[in-house]
Design a binder for these strands. Sequence first.
RNA 1: GGUUCCGUAGCUCAGUUGGAUAGAGCAACAGCCUUCUAAGCUGUGGGUCAUUGGUUCGAAUCCAAUCGGGAUCACCA
Length: 594
Amino acid sequence: MKSIAAQLKTDAAAAFNALYPDAQVKEQDILVNETKPEFKGDYTIVLFPFVKALRLNPAALGDAIGNYLVQNNDRYTHHETVAGFLNIAINDTYWSQYLNQFNLDLAVKSGEHTPKKIMVEYSSPNTNKPLHLGHLRNNFLGVAIANILAETGNEVSKTCVVNDRGVHICKSMIAWQMFGNGATPESTSTKGDHFVGEYYVKFNDAYKAEVAELVANGMEAAKAEQEAPIMKATQQMLVDWEAGKPEVMALWNTMNSWVYSGFDITYKAIGSSFDKTYYESNTYLLGKDLVEAGLAKGVFYQKEDGSVWIDLTEDGLDEKLVRRKDGTSVYITQDIGLAAEKQKEFNLDESIYVVGDEQNYHFKVLKLICQKLGVPGADGIFHLSYGMVELPSGKMKSREGTVVDADDLVAEMVRLAGEQTEAAGKTEGFSEAELQQLYETIGVGALKFYLLRVDPKKKMIFDPKESIDLHGFTATFIQYAHARICSLLTKTGYVNNEIVIDTKDLLEPEKQLLIIQEQYPGTLAQAALEYNPSALCNYTFKLAQQFNTFFEQCSIAKAESPEKKLLRQVLADHTAKIIRHSMNLLGIKVPNKM
RNA sequence: GGUUCCGUAGCUCAGUUGGAUAGAGCAACAGCCUUCUAAGCUGUGGGUCAUUGGUUCGAAUCCAAUCGGGAUCACCA
């Protein structure tokens, strides 16, 4: 079913065409806004664009259109034209029809588009260190966007490309060989990914020391960086790995398995999961055949030294290397190969990559090359680019130890949720286990909401002080409204299947709540269209806010009449249903009691 | 330097297919719990929408220039 705003556009276009057939007004030409609170009405049609063409003054035009709308649709009642704005009110009696037909699933899925096969790639960790704050934004976005697209009627698969090979992995391995003395995550009671990450740090410390020593002995810095024994050993290990040397493979497998067991715990805590995981160790050779094909097609060209390039200068980009002179592939070659591979396996309409905006150029190039090569599905490649997460002090820098660890952050949020719950004296009636669950719901929810509430495209500042705030524009605020509703409905004896009869003489808070509720499917559709979960955050907060106003002003227990009581119970119930629905899509749990 | 993104209240952010007096949250201040959960509600103060010019009935939104900031332009991934 169409939203009221959309229906009003249709009806207004019909009114224009009935009254002024020559103007040929189309639905898309009509701008419908919410009426500003200081004016009477619910939705507003902007008349200016038509005033000139029709050579009418705004007041006369507004009256004509307004009268036509009210006479031909019992959905609209009052209208008034103020300075070129035609304000239309929705008839109170219309709302009973709306309430009786309320069906969230139906409303959400009734979009007109044909379902698409969509893959969302996100998370994409390296196996040499634990996840950090930036990964959290990535994961939350990936999960939310996959949920939103699936809910709005698409077939979505989630995938993760694990960067499990390369020189950075070898660094951890070398350091463990040198300094580990056979230690394991078990023997040191350390989470596997953190354990391996510690050796990555140890590598860098040792490397720095070796370089310093060489320089002290008179070597040039640039040369020292190449000649440091630990670096040479690492490079040799990479060669051995590519050759499949058994003891290197064994160590690699062991250390990666430690990391994966650590990641599993983190993913479980933050609610990330994947339908398919690609490992770079399996995919890094992909794309080589496509380089050959590209050469044959003349899409690529070879320089005298044997390296292979593509010239993208006509597309406003640069020349880009796709194969080194030694015949090995580069990063983008694998990505081309993997794009083709995904397409073969899943036959996608859309392939979404949730990757930071520092790779905007890379993905522009990737898509262009795939298109030029004629890789199937190339047009469906979409880089869901998100901005970096920065701290109030600036960027996170591993050198300066300012990287915020994901596990630490989650644990801290859960701890603070507990602390604040206890401080507020709200622990009564919960078992220990229930409390632990509640703290996770609040702590993790707050973190997710904090990272999702900002437009993904924009870089954001993560202020630790602000992120732990459980007031205002937060998940906690919304969760609290939900918990109140659950309690309220139980206490006032709400029975789910009754029919609403009376929506006459709606009070302002009741009507405002209805209007916002009615906008949910449209908001969700917009969030899907723009790949923007923050639109849902904003909406759901607004809904909870309006519910709280309604809650203060419209008592259910002491309603003026049984009809009002039922109406308000239904309004509260629907609020809770929408909150559950949207928060679920955002990956945020809502408690029934808090 | 080339390309590209950004600049809105003290802080964090909405608002941009051009529409009414630019909105929230936090922070500050003043009220509201004998009544359905006060993690709440109500109110007050707070703005040269970076600057300048242009387009037009109308610009935070579009265009140009300037200032300030980020990203990127690797035979790294």
